[in-house]
Each structure stands twice: as structure tokens, then as C-alpha cells.
């Protein structure tokens, strides 16, 4: 019986996918990286609320996170394979590393209307079960992408990326210093089902979710900018096309020429945002890469001025409730001794 239901669901999805794939134009140069992946298909899914349904017998669940340099890892079991997922709210959904899920691609290409780009392929598939601690999902929609470069750079096995739509239905408490992600169920009104007695937020800030990415406003040089909140970004990124005034308080501390692929005219800049604030809270010394993000904005379907990543999240404890469109922050004092 179960098998039958599964087959039925898949068939429905296949029909949906295949009908859909005729109506969308597929970008030949789909991005290699899933965080930047925002296929039109996904956008469409979101509008009909096709998000994975989390299960598990808990009201609140603390999941230990591991650091790999400035990446955050969460242990998961995906259809029997155990390994690390990068906690990456800059990815819209679950992304699997092609190396370990190559066999799934055949399924996706034949049945689910896989999307194949010229340089980087991103395929869609469905995985049977994803288990993270006591949290599990069944029949999860996922992308498959080549993540070998992350593995090779970090020397750590990466099964995939844990994107935002997997956990956005929970209140998310992100605590880098203690290395934990705490997920708490929300009631129908979007209230946390476990009181946060111990937390006194220094700041409660508006946050919104659009197309499975999180956006907040923050100020640089007195200008209000639209930042994507991205736990998978090892560094903050500021769009070089942000309003000119922004750069009044950004000092460039490094520059690198990139001489790849026959061009001598490209560079990457590292700067310090000397006047960065969120709400009424100033945060000093925020380092950032400065680069052109217009392509990323196209991919996300939203104009973004930058991304806030590891440098931002290490400033405190963040409690995000997307149903309430609120983010509470406890800024860390001086680093406390253990």
C-alpha cells in the first residue's frame, strides 16, 4: 500500500514536472552552485506551497553543528547514506552532491524533468528519506549539483546542502559559538510552542522570506540595503553596484587579480564596512567581499545588495521566526571563557 502511494505521488509529480518543463525556458548557463540555484520550477513550487513536511516527535530539537573552517555542518542520513550537510540558508532547498547521488539523476532526468545546463548541471530528484537527529522528511524534492570543489577544499565529506525550505517552518535558533541549531515547532498562529525564557533579545528585527531565501534590511553608511541572510556564505558579500554612498565607509584592505580563463581584467576586493548597523545596533569591523551580485539577484529573482554570512552570525545568537517575520538577536558580549 505504501509503495502504491509513493508511486502515485511520484506519478503526480512527474506529470506536474513534465507539464511544467514545457512552459519554462531553461537558462543554458544555470549556476553551478545550489545557493545560487533558483530554477523557475522552484519558484512555481513555492507558489503552491510545495515544501518538505518535517516529521518527528518533538516540540523543540537541538541539532549539534560542526565547523569546517567557516562552513557549518549538520549530520544527516539520506536514504541510508550518512554524512554532513552544509547548513546553507542561501540555498533554497535540499541540494545533494552529485558524487554520492549520481544514480538519482537517471530517475530525475527520465521522470521528473531534469534541468541540464551547459556548464553546470542541476538536476531535480526526489529522495525517499532524510533524517537529521530526531527530525525526518519523506519524499523530499532535491536538486543534485557538483559539490566536489567544497569537499576538496575542506577535506570533509559533503553529502549536500541543507537549504532554507527544509527548516523554515520552525523557529530557528542559530548559535555559532555553542555550535547548535535549535528548531522549535510553531503553532498555527506562528508562535513558538516552547517559551524562550532564557533569551533576552538585544534587538528584534524584521525579516522576510521570499522565494525561499531570507531577507533583512541593514544600513551601510546610512543607506538601507537589502541583505540575504546566508549561513552558507563564508564571508559577507557587498554588491559593487550598491548605491555609491555605501562605499563612503567601506575601506578596501585587499585586492586580487584573477587571471583565469584568458582574462586579465578581473579582480576581487576585500573590504571592511566601518559603518554597518542593523536596527539601532552598530556592528564594527564587518569584513566583506565586494563583487558584482546582479547575476545572483537575477537567479534569486529579487534585487539584493549583499549577503550576510559567517562574519555576521558569529556576532551572537539569532532566533528566526519566518511566520512572525521576526528575528531576535542576542549579541555576544566579550568572548566568555568556557
Amino acid at each position: 500500500m505504501k509503495k502504491y502511494i509513493y508511486a502515485l505521488i511520484i506519478t503526480c509529480l512527474i506529470i506536474f514536472f513534465s507539464s511544467f518543463s514545457r512552459t519554462v525556458t531553461i537558462d543554458e548557463s544555470l549556476p553551478l552552485i545550489a545557493s545560487f540555484v533558483k530554477s523557475p520550477a522552484q519558484l512555481h513550487f513555492n507558489t503552491i506551497s510545495y515544501d518538505p513536511s518535517p516529521s518527528g516527535n518533538f516540540l523543540t530539537l537541538t541539532i549539534p553543528m560542526k565547523h569546517a573552517g567557516r562552513l557549518l555542518l549538520i549530520e544527516a542520513n539520506i536514504d541510508g547514506q550518512t554524512g554532513n550537510l552544509v547548513f546553507d540558508t542561501g540555498a533554497t532547498d535540499l541540494v545533494l552532491n552529485k558524487t554520492y547521488f549520481r544514480d538519482y539523476m537517471a530517475i530525475s532526468n527520465e521522470n521528473a524533468g531534469g534541468i541540464t545546463g551547459a556548464a553546470g548541471e542541476v538536476n531535480r530528484t526526489i529522495v525517499g528519506k532524510v533524517q537529521i537527529s530526531d527530525l525526518f522528511y519523506e519524499n523530499v524534492n532535491a536538486s543534485i549539483a557538483n559539490l566536489a570543489h567544497i569537499e576538496n577544499r575542506k577535506g570533509i565529506k559533503i553529502l549536500g546542502l541543507l537549504g532554507l525550505n527544509m527548516i523554515k517552518k520552525f523557529e530557528m535558533l542559530i548559535d555559532l559559538q555553542k555550535g547548535k541549531l535549535r528548531l522549535t515547532r510553531l503553532d498555527k498562529k506562528g508562535n513558538s510552542m516552547v517559551e524562550n525564557q532564557a533569551l533576552h533579545f538585544d534587538l528584534v528585527h524584521k525579516i522576510k522570506e521570499t522565494n525561499n531565501i531570507m531577507l533583512i534590511n541593514a544600513n551601510v553608511s546610512g543607506k538601507t540595503l537589502n541583505f540575504c541572510l546566508d549561513t552558507g556564505a563564508e564571508s559577507n558579500v557587498l554588491n559593487s553596484y550598491a548605491p555609491k554612498k555605501v562605499f563612503n565607509s567601506v575601506s578596501i584592505i585587499r585586492r586580487s587579480n584573477l587571471s583565469g580563463a584568458g582574462s586579465q581584467n578581473s579582480e576581487v576586493l576585500l573590504g571592511v564596512m566601518k559603518d554597518f548597523s542593523i536596527g539601532n545596533k552598530k556592528i564594527s569591523g564587518m569584513q566583506t567581499i565586494i563583487t558584482n551580485l546582479s547575476a545572483l539577484s537575477d537567479v534569486y529573482g529579487i534585487q539584493i545588495d549583499g549577503m550576510l554570512g559567517y562574519d555576521f552570525f558569529e556576532k551572537g545568537v539569532f532566533c528566526i521566526n519566518l511566520a512572525k517575520k521576526e528575528m531576535g538577536i542576542c549579541f555576544s558580549k566579550e568572548k566568555e571563557a568556557e
Binding site: S29, I33, S35, A119, G232, E234, S235, V237
Partner: peptide, 10 residues
């Protein structure tokens, strides 16, 4: 440009 890898920049 949309293939710039986020994971490479840092």
C-alpha cells in the same frame, strides 16, 4: 557571472 561560486569567494 551567475556561475561564480559562493563557496570559492571566501
Amino acid at each position: 557571472a551567475n556561475q561564480i561560486m559562493k563557496f570559492d569567494i571566501p
